[in-house]
Amino acid sequence: MRRLLIGLTAVFFGLLLVVPVIRIAMGAWNEGWTGFAGGLTRPETLHALWVTGLIVVVVTLLNTVFGVMLSLYLVRATWLGKKLKQLLNSLVDLPFAVSPVIGGLMIVLLLGPETALGAMFNWAGIDIVYALPGMILATLFVTFPLLVREVMPVLQEIGAGQEEAAATLGSYAWTTFWRVTWPSIRWSVVYGVVLTVARALGEFGAVLVVSGNILFKTQTATTLVYQDVENFNLTAANSVALVLAAGSVGLLLFMEWAKSRKEVH
């Protein structure tokens, strides 16, 4: 029974998770090194990777700062009523339930060129939809819960005791956060950041809708893969996908490491 179950699990993992990754790698090398390098060094690939990188950096920064603060408020704040806290807490999960395509649609509906807000921004010279700001907004929306959901349980678990102790010893909020709270939540924040990076790197649906997938302007790595597949340019698609997959596997390893640190502390 034991052997059967282990065997079944291993086979399933192999078929579902390992074989596909290998297949991508093989696909990328289909036409040898030149095919792979050619797929990667196309100007559109480089530009797409640059856009993706930019989005990842901006999104991760913003969501880390605001995510940590929101977690602190939702767990500790006394200025928020208990009912209100519960409501906000359940609202945090909403992006999990929203299809990325719908997330993109929301932004188009609110800030698209035909809307009042969009027109206002447009008049001020800022394009949101079919431009970088919209793509960042969409990715922010999609990745927002990841960090909060990692940090909140840890804050709940460590309790307010150490922070109260710091307060009675004369330490104000800022010092207390950096010297007492931060060392306890550090690794959960790192873990949440890794999840955020992974998701921001791979976001597709929401970005596709908001960006319009304009070559050399709003095309990201994932939307480029999509376009290459649609154009039957499989080797190029595989090359970009392999880079993304390598990035994900790297993040995965980092995630495992962060998790082990998280458990120690």
Partner: peptide
Amino acid sequence: DLPFALPTAVAGLM
């Protein structure tokens, strides 16, 4: 955790 880390478009391509 691989599916969480992998871009969905890449998963589709696979």
